[in-house]
Amino acid sequence: MSEELRSMLARGARAEAARFDGEHVGGETTVYERAIAPRRTARRLIEIAGAFVVIGAVGVGAYALFPGMGAQQPVTGSSDGASSTSSAPTPPGDQRSDGAAWTVDGINIDARSSAMPLSTFAGPALSASQSCLALAAFASLDGLGELGASAATHLGAFVGENGVNDVTTRSFDTDASAQQYLDAAASQAAACSGELAGTDASVDVVRLGLLGIPGTAVRVRVTVDALSGAAWTMWLYADGSEAVSVVVEPGAADSALAIVTSMVLGP
């Protein structure tokens, strides 16, 4: 009976495998990669990082730290914000691809939502500065493809009562490429800050790092009217060759750290 049972099970499994293979002749690896890559990134980050530690403030003096990078701009066809980030094939529905709700601070990610573009928040104030306008591309991890990288993947946004936190990931070919991208973003933000001198708008750039590891982050905060206190915030974070962007809309609670932590700990 044992052999007959073995034979029956093998026959059934083979038949089902043949049926499935017959229906799935196209490559679907990309769908899996889009689900897996950000999770691997997040897990690695949390394995080695206990906390974000500020290791240096760049502020408007970022030029001094990143000499020669001020003119570098991301090359992108989309110039306006994280909502246009993803150029990878996008399955319908949940863009996290595993279908399970991803919750941070009690809010589920909404794959169809995205943050307010920087230009919508501060367009008129920034319009005179190409450096400032280019920040939108960094927020969506776009451009600088010559560094060697995959297309950015827009995961969606956590929609809170007063605004959203928008999440995008991108894999670079090398650790150095990811760091160069963050350096370029910091340099661009510093250039933007310089070009806004004498206006009501301001840009604050802070470089962050992970304690004891090579991972780093750059936070860029743009305010148009200091009195209002409203700010558009972009976090760019990289460890190794993987990068994550979190864009916090004006008025929204900044959940960037919680989001990264959640990515690592999993659902």
């Binding site: 026959r11 059934g12 049926r19």
Partner: peptide, 8 residues
């Protein structure tokens, strides 16, 4: 889609 399904 095919006859394999019946056996499985």
């Amino acid at each position: 889609a095919d006859a394999h399904a019946g056996e499985a």
